[in-house]
Each structure stands twice: as C-alpha cells, then as structure tokens.
Design a protein around this nucleic acid. Structure first.
Length: 376
DNA sequence: AAAGGTCGCAACCGCACTGGT
DNA sequence: TACCAGTGCGGTTGCGACCTT
C-alpha cells in the first residue's frame, strides 16, 4: 500500500512539458512501448518521474486522443453516464472513444456542472432541486427583468412597489435558505460531512451563494435606498460559509447568471431579448422554457408554452432511457462502478432524462406567491 | 494601454487497489 | 501475512489566455 515516490524527492522536473520532452517520450514509447513507467524516464532521457510521463502520455500524447470541443452527443453521453455513475471519470471516459478521464472531468467541472446548476438541477443527483433556494437564479432574473422592463417601457425611475417586491423576494429567499440549511444539516449534508465527503449538491449551494452575493447587493442597494439591509444579507452569507462545507470548498466567483440557459450563454443576446419583451408573464414563461436563444419571436412563445417545454428538452438531446434505482445514484462507496448499477454501453439508464422531462419552470415560478405578485 | 479578474485546462497530489515476492 | 512497486483514479492547483474595467 506504499505510495509512489514523488518527483520532487529527486529533483526531477515538474510542470508543463516542452515539445522536446514530448518528442522524447513519444519516440521512446513508439519504439519500445512504455513498459515500466518508473524505468521509462531514464531510458528515454527524461528528467521526469514515471508518473508524470504516464500522465502526459495517457492524457495528451497518445495518438488516439481526440481533442477539441465536445460534441452535443458527447455532452449528452457524459450527462447520462454521470447521472448514475457519478464522478467515475474513467468509467465515463471508457464510453467516449478518444476522450480521457481528465478531459471529461475538466469539461464537467467547467461547463456541465454549471449548466445543471443554472437550470436548477442538483449536479450530484441530476434531479430538480425543488427548494426555493435552487430557484434563486431564476428569481433574481425575474427581479432584474422587472427592472429592465420598467426602465425600457416607461423610461421612469423604479417605483416603490417594484423595489418593495424586490426586497420581499429576497427576504423570502433568505428565510427559505436558512430553513434549507437547517433541514439539510440534519440530513444528507451532515451525513456526507461525517463521511468526509463533500457533496456537489452543497458545492452547488456555494455557487448559488456566490450568485446571491454578486447579484442583489448592488442592484437592491442601488435602487432601494438600503431598505434591504446589506448587513442582513451579509450575515446570511457568513452563516452559510461557516459550514464545514464552505470551509473545504473554494468559493468560485461567477459572473451573473441571468437566465437558465440551455444553449451556450455566449450565444444569448439577453439584453436584446429582454428589452423586446412586452409582458412579464411572457418573459417568465420564456425563461422557463429557456432554450429560445435564437428565438426573438416572443409572441409565438406566448402561445406555445407547453410545446416549448418539450422543445427545451429537445434542444438538449436526451436518450430516452429507464430511470435507475435510487441506489445507483452517485455514491461514495468503494464498490466497483462496473459491478453495480449495470454500466451498460448502449442500454445504460439515465435518471437525468426523466428528471428533465418532468420539470416545469413555469409552475415553479408561478406557484410562488411572491413571483405571482411580481408577474401581475 | 495597463491592471486586475476570471476561466479553462494541463499537470500534480495523494489515496486506493493489485499483484508479486 | 506483510511489504512494496506499479498503476488507476478523483480531487486540486498553477498558470496562461482571455475578458473587463
């Protein structure tokens, strides 16, 4: 069970590989195979440890490695597999020819996880998060939207009613979040902590906290003359970040998340889109549908709410597969991922598909009294 | 133009597992 | 059975590129 000696013990080189080193490694492996990775560096004339050589070869230099952007199919495959394999990157990679576990892991952490969070899905379970806190990105978007609409349509300063609603919405959100923290501390989060495991669901919370931190402080304080007390909000953040989770998770700061995008945010023209909208209800619905990145015909959306919900799902191709049993959700057990849960190749299952198709943002929005009030 | 911030990816770290002795 | 080398794997970090102010 001994650990491999590390590179720094022998003054071996670390860090980025040069083209010369790459060439030495490739030439040697093509001529002799890698054999023993530990012996390889000396034989190949490299001042690196074997582990570093192995990583460089498997993650970058191997001839069959596919590089470049992930396709929609690949993206969907990753989502499907992750929904029941969890962070078993190597297992996921085995279903994506030419892609390495490292590359998939990076892609997940930088793109797909954010995407799910923005949509209100728990990236750990791939299920919709029904607590109000999970809907905060959309709630904030709605509040912002109200501002935009008023500014655009009336060209007037914000009225008191709007700012009051903004404050109420955030107060409600705050209370909901505190309740959420209390509940979760006695259930999943706590058990995860006890196991020394940091759940991605809680990581999602941190991301949302950051979102909260970035959005309303400026906006509300700017418009609301401090009716919504900044220190109150700050306390909420402080409370949350003192949790064991927060202590172990880096606080990634993200830019504003205005809408739950299903398309590439870079392709969205949010301001243009929003300022063309004439009613809040329409916009909330469109936000709920989320996928109309290239659709400027708002009136059409207004008449096709339900259809668009389906289109939303279609915009992100989902394999129609049976849902796995709960036990096959990502776990931290040490069981072999290939042994349980039926890690099939073409017949694999996905809870993700079921979760998405049963989820309706419109209902979530309009069932909230405060949001109904805003949308009137 | 420059400084600071953010993001994405390559590489590293360290634990876990396997098989040989 | 214990030890050790080799390897697999998931989490984390460092840094360059790009973006924003």
């Amino acid at each position: 069970m001994g650990r491999s000696p590390c590179c720094d013990e022998n003054g071996l080189k670390k860090g980025p590989w040069t083209t010369e080193e790459d060439k030495k490694l490739v030439d040697f492996i093509q001529a002799h195979g890698h054999g023993s990775w530990r012996a390889l560096p000396k034989l190949a004339g490299l001042n690196r440890c074997g582990k570093s050589c192995r990583l460089r070869w498997t993650n970058y230099l191997k001839p069959d490695i596919k590089r470049g952007k992930f396709s929609q199919d690949e993206e969907q495959t990753i989502l499907n597999l992750h929904s029941f394999l969890g962070n078993k990157w190597s297992a996921i990679a085995s279903h994506l020819p030419g892609r390495t576990d490292n590359e998939i892991k990076n892609f997940w952490n930088t793109h797909l996880k954010k995407k799910l969070i923005q949509m209100g899905f728990d990236p750990m379970t791939h299920q919709p998060r029904t607590d109000l806190f999970a809907t905060l990105p959309q709630l904030m978007a709605l509040v912002q939207l109200k501002d935009l609409l008023l500014d655009h349509n009336n060209n007037n300063p914000l009225d008191h009613q709007t700012t009051r609603l903004q404050a109420e919405a955030l107060q409600l959100a705050k209370l909901q979040y505190v309740q959420y923290l209390l509940q979760s501390s006695s259930t999943s989060s706590l058990s995860n902590h006890q196991n020394g495991v940091v759940s991605s669901a809680a990581a999602a919370d941190i991301e949302l906290i950051n979102l909260l931190n970035s959005l309303p402080n400026q906006q509300l304080l700017h418009h609301h003359h401090h009716q919504f007390n900044n220190s109150q909000f700050g306390n909420m953040i402080t409370t949350s970040t003192t949790s064991p989770m927060a202590a172990t998770q880096p606080l990634h700061h993200h830019n504003h998340i205005l809408l739950p995008p299903l398309c590439d945010p870079q392709e969205e023209e949010e301001v243009h889109f929003l300022t063309q909208t004439t009613t809040t209800t329409t916009t909330a619905t469109t936000m709920a549908n989320g996928n109309d990145c290239n659709n400027n015909d708002i009136n059409n959306n207004n008449n096709t709410n339900h259809n668009n919900n389906n289109e939303m799902m279609n915009s992100w191709p989902v394999e129609v597969l049976p849902s796995p049993p709960p036990s096959s959700l990502p776990q931290t057990s040490t069981s072999n991922p290939t042994a349980g849960g039926g890690e099939g190749t073409s017949s694999s299952s996905s809870s993700y598909a079921g979760g998405v198709t049963s989820y309706n943002w419109t209902e979530l929005f309009l069932d909230e009294p405060i949001l109904s009030e805003i949308s009137l």
